[in-house]
Nucleic acid binder design. Structure first.
Lengths: 215, 215
DNA sequence: GGCGGGAGTGAATGATCGTTCACTGCAGCT
DNA sequence: AGCTGCAGTGAACGATCATTCACTCCCGCC
């Protein structure tokens, strides 16, 4: 049964790759992409330098893989959280934003990494990052479009608001030296939701969402 | 009169430094800090490599000086624009935000630079960057605090909102691949002001600011 | 006209680092 | 026991680059 052997090989390959990527993220959070030598990465990952080149094409490919890995792990998390919030677009939007900030909070440095090191990537790599970001934001965008359609939200441009929300969520990582001393994650999320929703929810429906609009 | 000679020397020194910093910003926008060799920088600036070390302590000092230079040029621009808007805190806030986005638009790459390369700076350098950012934001913060005090704005935390506004303004540079295809600067500013102010202005005073609240 | 010294030069240096490749060890097969 | 090929190793190579320094040039002054 050669299939079994292939499967075993494939699993081993994946776990080795993850081992290297985890080490890469760790080293890069400590210093940065350019400061990370392949020798240091090999040491952190507990493998030899040569092996890195068996699993990756080179240093930049490791950076791309690491960043995509991070963004991928963000991707599928919003939809489930929004599902739990039920059918109401405003509730869904709030739940999605909350989850997004919570994910970011778990790994603030990873978000910083994507902002800091994107430029060093090839244009093709940057393109994939953008697409992943759009894909992650899609559920939020859908909730916005739905809310506008149903008249629960003012006639805003979902494409504007969804990126505003992404920026504010990223802000929890980008400006954590400003926010972290004065807010907990929970308080930050509540305050941002209250602020943004009062600009988003249609005046006629404000009372219905009082629990979200009061910080 | 030795004072005159000293003054001449000082002016020449400043202009040389600016010449180098301008070249540095240009090269770094094209590639990035780590990709910029001192040889390439010297070529771009039209001076020899050795001269760079007469005017700066080293490569990192050039990076710090370049970033501080950029942020400094942002610093003094908000207050005058807000002065022109009169005494009303809401009008002042809108005018300040508008000016901030306009400055950023003039040099989007410079903003990107500050986000990308901050980490490579020493902690002391990063500290100075944060302080400059706080100083730049101070007039906006003051308008917010004033508006809350006078009851024209809802009882929000100025420290939260002011950084939200900064983040959204930076977003024009950070996410220009998203915003630029669908918005002009003018449209972007109007839409953001309309969105944020409807979350900020106290309900009782909404009518007074209709010209800002309608995109 | 010679001199002091500040401004400017750029080849040489030494260290770092990404990448390569000749090698070892070992698991499974005959 | 011998063979095959895959996983893994790490010293060596070549290129790059920040930094230095011995040098030139020239201006203003005695």
């Amino acid at each position: 049964m050669p299939d079994v052997e292939d499967a075993v090989r494939s699993v081993r390959r994946d776990s080795r790759r993850r081992q290297v990527l985890d080490a890469a993220v760790a080293v890069m959070q400590r210093t940065g992409y350019h400061e990370m030598s392949m020798q240091a990465l090999a040491g952190e990952a507990g493998v030899s330098v040569g092996l890195l080149y068996k699993y990756f094409g080179g240093k930049e490919e490791i950076l791309l893989a690491a960043v995509l890995d991070i963004l991928d792990s963000f991707g599928d998390q919003l939809a489930p959280a929004m599902e739990e919030a039920g059918d109401d677009p405003v509730e869904r939007l709030a739940a999605g934003f909350r989850r997004y900030v919570e994910i970011i909070d778990l790994d603030r440095d990873a978000v910083l990494l994507t902002y800091r090191e994107s430029r060093t990537l090839s244009p093709a790599g940057r393109e994939r990052i953008k697409q992943l970001e759009v894909a992650t934001a899609a559920p939020l965008r859908a909730a916005l479009a739905d809310g506008v359609d149903r008249g629960l939200m003012r006639a805003l441009d979902p494409d504007l608001v969804v990126y505003d929300l992404m920026l504010l969520a990223h802000g929890w990582a980008l400006k954590d030296w400003h926010f972290a001393p004065i807010y907990t994650v929970e308080a930050f999320v509540r305050a941002q939701i209250a602020l943004m929703l009062s600009g988003i929810v249609a005046p006629a429906h404000r009372r219905r969402y009082r629990h979200l609009l009061e910080p």
